[in-house]
Design a protein around this nucleic acid. Structure first.
Lengths: 332, 332
DNA sequence: AACGTTGGCGTCAACGTTGACGTAGCTGCC
DNA sequence: GGCAGCTACGTCAACGTTGACGCCAACGTT
């Protein structure tokens, strides 16, 4: 690098002290209008850019936030990441992005390096059983927002979708449209306490007055392939199955493929409901009925929570549970 | 924040100078095995993490790289971003992510803030007509890798796919499978010099001995909706059209939808070839024949180019043009 | 015994910025 | 005229780390 332009360069050009330039740049007040103009002119002319490292070193605000997610393979995530990044930029912060592959050890690494870089806060889609890891960072003073509903600590906020309600809605929709022999393809990655969708599915069945037969539940990896396998198993176990709620849209798409491969028509023979409402869901045939998770809303909430935590540290924040919505398309 | 653990804390605990701790932590040599052990123990016990801001301030290496892309809405990008991030992490760097919405002004903002944060280098999917902007940063000493094939400057590397060859392959495939009345849905965002796919399409037609009729080309936004509109226009202009090459897979998927909506069967009445090979392409019906861009390869090449530029600045690098591959599925 | 070399450490300054504090000059008031 | 209060700066130190350099003891060489 040739050399960076520093406060001192601007200062000598204008004929004031670096401190004064700093005051102008940060608009702290304590300078005359004339100086302000001269300084800003020089800043422009020299192309001065404040060095965030130096600034962060002393103010303990680096102007960065971290986004830590499981990965981009689930199409639900990218659009979210972009929105969050945009909002961070609007708030004058730059975003670090790091994926963990849903591996607790990697998540630990990632958080370590973000901490090293003195991020002002992090938004985390937690890997399994890492709540302790995260609360520990929160206690050390790092503002943490997690997309989950289980944690409670100072400096930490929880934002999540009401997936249980969503699953119940999906299930009731299946029942209301005349299906009575239901199954669910759940995720094999969810530990018992986190099985909101399964709970919702069962609750939806219980709440219904109609006498649906006892449901089948299989657990698969939440991927297209998992959905295919899962649907296969469901059909094997219960050949007369006529409605399936899938863990997410990828699983649902896989399930529809498997159903077709076995000669069952969707939705005539069997109805499928997904969850997430990824872009693909409206494009497949038949278009997928699904529980929509409002990504703009989620990004809004997490960034707001994070910025509040950053601005007023230590303030406890109530967990936020976001509503979801059923989008009925052609698969039911 | 309660307080960070610094070199000094470790030093006083061990009973050496901070400089020695620094030497051990960075494995510079110049210390005894005994000291090394004591220092590492203390580091572990106190949970010391080096402060990258301070380190970067003096070494002029922040340990960060920036990834600047148009946005996550095109599903081609996210998987790439994740891979690049992973490779950056393997090289000990943390990744900033920023999207520009393909807006030159935003891209300028983004680069400014990355520069402020003293990134060690950036990987950019350039917005339109921003080559000058980027070469200017490269000349200022910032290692820049762009996914493009037009630029040439010190400190700057170009990596891109051979889209022209890919488009020619797709076109020849259409001709070879008996289609002769072809059309293309190109991108309205590509300025003339960047229309590699269009050039390849026309070249593929010229190269063919068979007497195909003159092609139709329409330009649309490279989205599903653009593909729908584009296919509509192509059919209107030339009702006997029997083969279409689309700018990318999203466009191709839109085109297939529009074809079906007009009662044309794919591939029986009209064949469609896309470009990119996004995940969705193998899942739609009919599964899309497409030009596969090898994302693992691209991420490998751009990160390697970047790290070379960072490690040996000023070295000129020849532009890299990556091969592509035709994946034949059901839509042709 | 005198001398160079090396290993193992410490000291000091600097990176670019801001927090804390000082001060010169002016204004207004009694 | 004396003094308080304000404005518009400047000075100095500090943030946590590393580069440059220096020092001392131990060792090997002649």
């Amino acid at each position: 690098m040739p050399k960076e332009v520093t406060l001192r360069d601007v200062a000598t050009q204008v004929g004031v002290s670096p401190r004064t330039v700093s005051r102008v740049v940060n608009d702290e007040g304590g300078f005359s209008e004339a100086t302000r103009q001269k300084v800003l002119d020089a800043v422009e002319q020299l192309g001065y850019q404040p060095n965030m490292l130096a600034r962060g070193l002393i103010t303990r605000r680096s102007g960065t936030v971290g986004l830590v997610g499981g990965g981009m393979t689930d199409p639900f995530f990218p659009a979210l990441a972009e929105r969050i990044q945009r909002k961070a930029r609007e708030a004058g912060r730059t975003m670090f992005f790091a994926s963990t592959d849903s591996d607790p050890a990697r998540q630990a690494d990632v958080l370590k390096s973000l901490w090293s870089h003195a991020v002002d806060g992090v938004i985390v889609f937690p890997a399994l059983d890492t709540i302790d890891q995260l609360t520990s960072y929160a206690r050390r003073g790092l503002p943490v927002v997690i997309v989950d509903d289980q944690a409670d600590a100072p400096n930490l906020a929880c934002v999540s979708f009401d997936l249980e309600a969503g699953a119940a809605m999906a299930t009731r929709h299946l029942l209301d449209t005349g299906r009575s022999r239901l199954g669910m393809i759940a995720s094999s990655l969810s530990p018992p306490r986190r099985r909101n969708r399964e709970r919702g599915f069962l609750r939806g069945l219980r709440d219904s007055a109609a006498g649906a037969s006892p449901p089948e539940v299989v657990r698969m990896l939440p991927t297209v392939e998992g959905g295919e396998t899962g649907m296969g198993q469901l059909i094997d176990r219960r050949p007369d199955i006529d409605g399936v709620f899938a863990y997410n849209d990828l699983v649902a798409i896989g399930a529809m493929r498997a159903a077709k491969a076995r000669g069952r028509r969707v939705p005539d023979d069997i109805a499928v409901v997904g969850c997430d409402d990824i872009d693909m869901s409206s494009l497949v045939t038949p278009a997928l009925t699904t529980v929509r998770l409002d990504r703009p809303l989620l990004s809004e909430e997490v960034t707001q929570a994070l910025h509040e935590l950053i601005d007023t540290p230590g303030i406890p924040r109530d967990p936020v549970k976001l509503p979801v919505e059923l989008v009925v398309r052609e698969s039911t």
